[in-house]
Amino acid sequence: MKVCDICESKPAKYKCPVCGRYVCEDDFDFNKGVCKVCSETMCEICGKYPSIGYCMICGRNGCEDCLIQVTPVSYVCKECIRQGRYRLETWQSIS
């Protein structure tokens, strides 16, 4: 019998569709249908994909679909750009 890849003590009953971990009931997020690790690192904007960084304006974790890289180490979410809180052409925050 497989043991949970997260707690390493309880029997694994579920396989996470995102990362492939085998996890027990305690380490599975039933609302999102993924393991607790993936649940905590999912995009806070769309909730569909793992995050790659955070928006430097609103601070939310975002995925490749929801963030735009504005410098080698900085991202802004498309929502903040749409709401006018950041202008891509000037690369400056206007909050």
Rank of each mutant, 00 (worst) to 15 (best):
E25V: 09
I45L: 09
M56F: 06
G53D: 08
D27P: 07
G33L: 12
E64V: 04
G33W: 13
E64R: 14
G33Y: 14
I68R: 05
Y49C: 03
R60Y: 13
C55E: 05
C55Y: 10
F30L: 15
D65G: 00
I68S: 01
M42E: 07
C63Q: 00
Y49L: 10
C63K: 00
Q69L: 15
Y54F: 15
V34L: 10
E40C: 01
V34P: 15
F30A: 13
L67S: 01
M42N: 10
K48S: 10
L67D: 04
G47R: 07
D27A: 01
M56T: 09
P50Y: 05
I68L: 14
K36D: 11
L67F: 08
S51E: 14
C38T: 08
G47A: 01
K32E: 08
C35E: 03
G47N: 12
I45Y: 06
C35R: 01
D65L: 14
E40N: 11
D65A: 09
E64Y: 12
C55P: 09
E44I: 05
G33H: 10
V23C: 07
N31F: 12
N61C: 13
E64I: 03
V34K: 12
F30G: 09
M42L: 15
Y54L: 09
E25I: 07
T41Y: 15
F28R: 00
Q69Y: 07
V37T: 13
I57N: 04
K32T: 05
C63T: 04
C63S: 09
S51W: 08
E44N: 05
L67I: 08
I52P: 11
F28K: 00
I52C: 06
N31Y: 11
N31I: 14
M42K: 06
C43N: 03
D65T: 10
P50N: 00
C58L: 06
S39R: 02
G33P: 08
I68Q: 06
E44Y: 08
C43R: 01
C63P: 02
S39G: 07
Y54W: 06
E64S: 13
I52V: 13
C46E: 11
G59R: 00
I57R: 00
R60D: 13
F28M: 11
D65P: 06
D26T: 06
Q69H: 01
L67T: 11
Y49Q: 04
E25M: 04
C38A: 01
E44Q: 14
K32S: 13
F30V: 11
L67A: 04
S39M: 04
K32G: 03
M56L: 15
I57T: 00
C46N: 04
G59S: 06
I45A: 01
V23I: 15
C58M: 02
I57E: 08
V34Y: 10
